[in-house]
Amino acid sequence: MGLLGSDERPRDIILGTLDDLINMARSRSMWPLTFGIACCAIEMMATWDPKIDADRFGMFFRNTPRQADVMIVSGTVNKKLAKRLRRLYDQMAEPKWVISMGACANQGGPFRQGYSVVEGVDKIVPVDVYIPGCPPRPEALLQALLLLRDKIADRELRYQKPREIPTDYDVLAEPGKDGRLPVL
């Protein structure tokens, strides 16, 4: 990549593309939105506590979506919350990423059979990293954040992200009126 000086050049000169520079800056200052929903939120808080401490990677929580660039969906998303979650996602400025933390955010979790639970947050927002677990350990969330950091650093400056997430039924409607067969 050429970001670090090689032996032929003095070490205080870095060569790279603008993409690399901007992505390096973005990936080293990922600011998550404070959006703890359920049990995974407590493990998310535990990732920022002195034992694991994600602060040292430049990740500080921002309370408003306008200033955040990562949304960590930590907990079960139900149909009532899904509308608000999508609105929060839309309020975040580009570039933005989503980490789906825990089984509930991945695919509905232990509550998947229920009438009010959305089977996975990726039916509402596009997800970049999925973390399995119920709840995932703080180390797992840290690994996901570092994975996301590498994903951002490898990206091109202009990237395409899907805006519409197609599903064949109405995710937010009540059961019986959403146009699909029951989930087993």
Binding site: T76, N78, K80, R84, F111, G114, S116
Partner: peptide, 14 residues
Amino acid sequence: IGYLHRNHEKIEEA
């Protein structure tokens, strides 16, 4: 409230 309603009671019947 109800933004975390995860239908515990109905699921626990099954």
